[in-house]
Structure formats: C-alpha cells, structure tokens
Simulated assay, not measured.
Amino acid sequence: MAIREVIQGVEYDGLLGGPEFPTLTKNVTVLSGTTLKRGTVVSKNSDGKYVAVTTVLGPAGIVADDVDASNGDTVGTIYISGRFNRENLIVPSEFKIADNEDKFEAANLYLTSIHA
C-alpha cells in the first residue's frame, strides 16, 4: 500500500495509526496568521487559541484538515485523541517527537510507527 492512495473514494494518507484508541475530534480556534496542514501537531496558547506545537506548551491535538487562518482567527478541526503514525506528524524542527512522547500520551495522542 502506498503512503497515500485512494481506495473506493476514501483517501488514506497514513496519519491515523490504528483503531486501538478512540479517535475523537474537536472544533477549535486557530490563531490568526497561521496556516496549518493536516497532521500538524498543535498547542493551545494562553488565549485558548491553537498554534503549531511548541516545546513550552506541548501537544494538545493534531490538525484533522488543512486550516488557513492567514487572514484572521479561523475555526478548524483537530484530533484530541487517537493513535497516529509519528512519521506523518508535522512539527517545527526544534520540537523532537521522541523527546516529548510522554506529553503526547498525557494529551491522549498515542504514537506508533509505519515502520514498526
């Protein structure tokens, strides 16, 4: 199976890592000036808005669908629980997934690997 393919109208991109944990979503406010792709790990800032994950704030969710908040705060959908393939997560270069795995689990975001 390719990393991204369409099967009878359903597109699989490898983000979801399995059914072992409930996959739940939530609509949230994404901070103005931000563009987030599906699979981006996000943090919740002190104003209650979501931004790309930081080492200080830690993971609070994973973007379910692309969000363009470049022209103002925008509502977007994030995963707030589930199992995800770490290779398909999008994080800033200074954020190391392996160093923060306990923070993912504390946020009900469980990681697996496509290669495991």
Rank of each mutant, 00 (worst) to 15 (best):
M1W: 05
R4I: 13
Q8F: 04
Q8W: 04
Q8V: 14
V10C: 11
Y12G: 05
D13Q: 09
L15E: 02
L15Q: 00
L15W: 01
L15M: 04
L16T: 11
L16D: 01
G17W: 10
P19L: 06
F21L: 06
F21S: 11
P22C: 14
T23A: 14
T23P: 01
T25Q: 12
T29H: 00
L31G: 00
L31D: 09
L31V: 12
T34G: 02
T35P: 04
T40D: 07
V41W: 07
V41C: 14
V41T: 12
V42F: 00
S43L: 10
N45L: 11
K49R: 15
K49V: 10
A52I: 05
T54F: 07
G58S: 09
G61F: 00
A64F: 10
D66A: 10
V67L: 07
D68K: 10
I78N: 07
Y79L: 06
I80E: 14
S81A: 06
S81D: 04
G82K: 10
N85M: 12
R86Y: 13
N88R: 15
N88P: 02
L89Q: 04
V91W: 02
E94T: 15
F95Y: 15
K96L: 10
K96W: 02
I97C: 11
D99F: 06
F104Y: 12
F104H: 00
A106T: 08
L109K: 03
L111S: 00
S113K: 10
A116I: 07
